[in-house]
């Protein structure tokens, strides 16, 4: 009876476990360090995948903290699919309860931003509506519903998440205010934009098939100072694929 892949998997994910019996250097000597090659390959490759997936978190906490955190994460949440481009989906929930990150309560939302940007990068290609598609009678526009591109995500945060994202890229100190952001992909490069007050609730209502008028009512987005600029941003970023 040989060593099973179940035994090998357990031993690979547990750095201090004994090397499974039945493995050698081919000439009767133990395979301790040889087995560690696989342990190391797995830990390093998954850690690198997380570094790639979460550039904002990486920048905010630094290399040493990030790698230590990744070592815990990858053993609690090994990938469930070979698509490494989507590895890390449980990171926001993990960070909610990761004790060493307790003093940085905005990290879960920062992880959501990183995940949304990655998702947008690989999202399906779509054709946005033309900018003049909204040049219709105001009452017709108010009665319209929209469909959004699959790259689009709205992230509402209790923290200045746009400022934190910007800080991680060398920007200045974030304001002391809650911020919501829009993630989109106009061409090939994802974009992140600060939303006006109630803009997230407005877009979320549209996602849930409200008419523009209904979305304005439920979100309390200011019809003048909020709606106009947000519509302009939405058209610039190509987030609507259909108006009907």
């Amino acid at each position: 009876m040989g060593v099973s892949q179940s035994d090998l998997t357990s031993a690979i994910l547990a750095p201090d476990a004994d090397v499974p019996a039945g493995l050698s250097d081919g000439h009767g000597k133990t395979a301790g360090k040889r087995f560690d090659v696989y342990r190391n390959n797995v830990a390093v490759s998954l850690t690198e995948a997380l570094v790639t997936a979460f550039p904002t978190i990486y920048s905010l906490v630094g290399d040493q903290f990030f790698r230590a955190m990744a070592g815990v994460y990858l053993r609690q949440h090994p990938p469930s699919s070979p698509l490494m481009m989507f590895y890390g989906a449980e990171m926001p929930a993990f960070l909610e309860t990761f004790e060493p990150a307790k003093g940085l309560p905005y990290l879960p939302d920062a992880a959501r931003v990183d995940l949304a940007l990655r998702h947008a990068y690989h999202a399906a290609d779509t054709t946005p509506i033309a900018a003049d598609a909204v040049q219709i009678a105001p009452e017709d526009l108010m009665a319209s519903r929209v469909e959004l591109a699959p790259a689009v995500q709205v992230i509402a945060s209790a923290y200045p998440i746009h400022g934190i994202w910007s800080l991680a890229r060398g920007g200045s100190k974030p304001p002391a205010a809650a911020q919501d952001v829009l993630i989109s992909r106009p061409a090939f490069d994802p974009e992140i934009d600060l939303l006006p007050p109630n803009g997230a609730a407005f877009l979320t209502a549209l996602v849930n098939n409200a008419t523009i008028e209904e979305a304005l009512d439920t979100s309390s987005l200011d019809p003048a100072s909020g709606f106009g600029p947000l519509l302009g941003l939405a058209l610039q970023r190509g987030i609507f694929t259909r108006l009907h």
Binding site: G2, S6, Y38, N41, S81, M84
Partner: peptide, 15 residues
């Protein structure tokens, strides 16, 4: 590389 729905992202050996 996959066992019990866990993908380990390495090319692991077999007998």
């Amino acid at each position: 590389s996959t066992h019990d729905a866990h993908f380990l992202n390495d090319l692991l050996p077999l007998p």
